[in-house]
Each structure stands twice: as C-alpha cells, then as structure tokens.
Design a protein around this nucleic acid. Structure first.
Length: 202
DNA sequence: TACACGATTTACT
DNA sequence: GTAAATCGTGTAT
C-alpha cells in the first residue's frame, strides 16, 4: 500500500487546541521507516497530556528536565520515553514553543509492514498493536527517536481522510494515571469505537 | 550516590 | 484475578 494521504505539516501540530489535535489524529496513518523497514498503522487510540496544568503530564508544574525538554519545543516532533524500564512510549508533541503539550499514541491498526511488526514483537501471523508499548514496538520506535521531526524520513503521519462518524469517536478517562488525583478523571482519552475497527476486518 | 517508582505488558494462579 | 519484569528519571541525601 502506498501513502495516498497528505503528509501532516507543522501547521497541524502547532495548533493550540491539543484535545482537537488528538481527535484529529484518529484515523490518520503513522508511518515509520526504521532499520530499512517501512511500516505504517492507522491510529485508533490516543491520549492528550496538557502540560503544566495537567498532573498526569511529565511537564506538570513546568518541570523542565533533559527528558521532557523536547515537549517545550514547537509541535511536530516525537517525545519517546521508557516506561517501567521496558516499554518505549511514543508521543506527538503539540502546541507552540514554550507550551509542553503532547499526544500519546495508544493504539494502531497495521496497514503496512505487518511481517516486520510480527518479527519485532516476537510473534508469527499476528501481533498486538493495541497498547502504547506494543504499538511503538511494532513500529520500531525507541527512546533514541525522541526529538525526531515528524516529517520523515524516519517518522511521519499522513491524513488519509478516513471517515469516523461522531458516534464512533469515544472519549473517556486516561489509563494508568491514578497518581494524577482529580486530573485522572479528565476525558482526555480518545479512540475509535471497537465496533468500527472490527468492521474494517475482512 | 541512593532510592522509589512508573502514561505497561505478560504470564501465571 | 494477581504479580513479576526491568531501568531511566526525578528527587532526596
């Protein structure tokens, strides 16, 4: 399959409504060309992290460290960090210079390079890509890719104009952020309904 | 330097 | 349902 869609540019990522950017990413295609293998998957689930005022964000309270520095730059670059010492989690940095917002990619539906994904995941014939750790691993994304501009040649996102009816765009609380107190209940997790995803099978 | 802990996944009871 | 894996990061000594 080729990339028929339009490659998202800085004007997409630097918008200031990060929740809307997150919703807009659903149905777009995330591409990676890593270790010479071109893989891609349709984005099915994301979470938004709204920076200094969001207790669930690594940038809460304007905490600025070597790890989070990339989020303080302009939107359109990758923020990848190691979670639980095992999983590489991929985020899209959004908003403008000085505002550390980001979107965590929590799930993809493979559309290109499936066999490479199976090999990276250590499976045959199929592999999970429905969690932030498994999706990043299938695409070959690791912490070394943090800071990379999302314009290729390693990482980029295309808008393939996949239609997602509003009734199939679900919002709810984010996963695994109980430590964030009342912010844990905010409806910043967006996903395409399992029913619609299932209908794409066959 | 030391230590506690996580934006998770997987295997096992 | 519960627990282990595993290490970089942030914060405190």
């Amino acid at each position: 399959m080729t990339t028929q869609g339009h490659r998202l540019g800085p004007e997409f990522y630097t918008r200031t409504d990060t929740l809307q950017v997150g919703r807009d990413l659903l149905g777009c295609t995330l591409h990676s060309c890593i270790d010479g293998e071109h893989c891609a998957g349709l984005i099915t689930e994301v979470e938004a992290y709204l920076g200094v005022n969001d207790r669930a964000s690594h940038a809460f309270g304007a905490r600025r460290t070597a790890r989070t520095e990339i989020m303080f730059g302009p939107g359109g670059r990758a923020y990848v960090y190691l979670c639980y010492g095992i999983h590489h989690l991929f985020n899209v940095v959004t908003h403008q210079e000085g505002t550390p917002h980001a979107i965590l990619i929590r799930g993809i539906r493979p559309v290109l390079g499936q066999e490479t994904m199976w090999m990276r995941r250590g499976t045959k014939g199929t592999c999970r890509t429905d969690g932030p750790g498994t999706a990043a691993q299938a695409l070959g994304i690791k912490t070394v890719h943090t800071g990379m501009v999302l314009q290729g040649p390693e990482l980029w996102i295309t808008n393939d104009e996949v239609n997602i009816p509003a009734s199939h765009l679900l919002a709810g609380p984010r996963i695994g952020v109980d430590y964030a107190g009342e912010d844990a209940a905010l409806p910043y997790r967006f996903r395409i309904s399992p029913e619609l995803i299932r209908s794409w099978r066959a």
